[in-house]
Design a protein around this nucleic acid. Sequence first.
DNA 1: CTGTTAGCGCCTTCAC
DNA 2: GTGAAGGCGCTAACAG
Lengths: 333, 333
Amino acid sequence: MDKQNVTIYDVAREAGVSMATVSRVLNGNSNVRQTTKEKVLQVIDNLDYRPNAVARGLASKKTTTVGVIIPDVTDGYFSSLARGIDDIATMYNYNIILANSDDNPGKEASVLNTLLGKQVDGIIFMGNEIDDHLRDEFKRSDCPIVLAGSVDVNNSVPSVNIDYVDAVMNETNRLIQHGNQKIAFVSGPLKQAINKDYRLKGYKKALNSNHIPFSDDLVFETTSTYEDGYNLADELIKKNITAAVVTNDELAAGLLNAMTDRGVVVPDDFEIFTSNNTKLAKMLRPQLSSITQPLYDIGAVAMRLLTKIMNQEKIDDKYVVLGYEIEERQSTK
Amino acid sequence: MDKQNVTIYDVAREAGVSMATVSRVLNGNSNVRQTTKEKVLQVIDNLDYRPNAVARGLASKKTTTVGVIIPDVTDGYFSSLARGIDDIATMYNYNIILANSDDNPGKEASVLNTLLGKQVDGIIFMGNEIDDHLRDEFKRSDCPIVLAGSVDVNNSVPSVNIDYVDAVMNETNRLIQHGNQKIAFVSGPLKQAINKDYRLKGYKKALNSNHIPFSDDLVFETTSTYEDGYNLADELIKKNITAAVVTNDELAAGLLNAMTDRGVVVPDDFEIFTSNNTKLAKMLRPQLSSITQPLYDIGAVAMRLLTKIMNQEKIDDKYVVLGYEIEERQSTK
DNA sequence: CTGTTAGCGCCTTCAC
DNA sequence: GTGAAGGCGCTAACAG
């Protein structure tokens, strides 16, 4: 009933060599004669031997697995990053332990600790907010960590992102150029730095450079769900708002559908710009205009960066900023 | 530079007990005097000691991690299952190693092997097709495996599903009751058992019981992408088809949008039923009528079942069939 | 090029 | 209740 009855020792005996030699061929060590190597390989095949990664991990202090903390796999934005992460991880022979955190600081800290206990070689963290406590844990962990599509105002950890300030500023500018004066900023929780310190800042910059006064009255804070977006429509209509910059695609989808359901024609009567360009944006009608982020690449680059750090390679840039585009589809004029 | 400098040995020395005792309190063994237990706990806290799960795994032959093989995290159907899986896993103190397979038999077999090498305590497999080779690997693995939202015609492995035959039959029946005679079956790859042996069968049963002849001409095999659905519209229109049962939500979304973009009014001129009730279904306009599967629960129940098997508990039913509903929204009359 | 010998950090009998 | 000792399966010097 053992999962793993045949060990390196069995292989060694069967092949008439020492376990060290078997270990060498397993690890691609070149110091093995071709003929013995072949013989060992042969025996491994015959015995259907599969190295025990746990034992290997204990001995070598490397588990070839990395932890991935994600708010919610079900979210199209983060799952796209996760896909990029996993593909690159696989490419470099790593596996990922995926853990959902719901953006909950308690869960994040807790899962971080269990990951460290499992001796992951590195961690990719995705989350909308990094508080002091978490930053401390990161520091104390003594484990390579990279943020993917997530922002740390202190830049205390390597990260891969786009320029959120710039992107939102550009969106807002376009909306202004389209003639809108009352533009809503529809956001996820403002305690999240990515919303408050980056996106909102971009929004304000655009208003400012166009001499439009900023008003708290046009800032709508939500929990980023489809329903939140849907429920917001009436209020926006009542305030005679004619356009919105939205920080999340599902949120934008809710707003869009609510508008349409109320007979408000998008984009003629109301324009919407969203932020993440998940699959969803193109599947809606009208299609959502959006910042087009290289989602897969953000994950992929983050994982690649992590491999370099784990590997102690020299890093050119610990704070990668990838390019983005703005694609105007059908939800803007 | 060690990730884990303080070991159980340090704790033992510091607390003036043996490592065996420390191990006991760590594992909740009752044979420890209350006072010593408290002392040990105190030292653990002081030293910021964190047990090394790898060493523990080697010694105990339990890793408290399970492998999860998924076609693509980016797919709303599977990511919902994955969320259910992770939540229950967390509840039972397991972590999940998530691996994308793209439904590719080669990748599936390969990742299965690396998971087994990592000594996972169990595996949840999601995939649209299980071929003989994979079934063999499952059997040989001698590792608890549960299928989630995935079907094995041979029932060689415990699984959690809904009754796909019945569900598709019901959908088709409704379409027939709505007066449709030419109903398309728009499917993912027909080499996948879930499509060919279950859904298609349900479609045929409905036709049959309504004395409508089955025609291969109305079966459309695709790769299940949004684009596939979009590109199919013209053909369906040309054939004067008035309704479709679709096996995948993104596929259905593509078809829906293509119809709308071509001026075909859904549901007046064309009805659509989809199969998975992912978030997407309700976000589209018109909203997609669908089989409403308990996605999260399928994952959750599968993981719960797996814990029972890993725990050698008695299992009432190794082939769980969860209930489903059919929800008619706006894409059907 | 190959074998020997220690551990890696923890669990788990088995004594006391 | 607690300690001592022997692995778990593999890697990593160190010899030869």
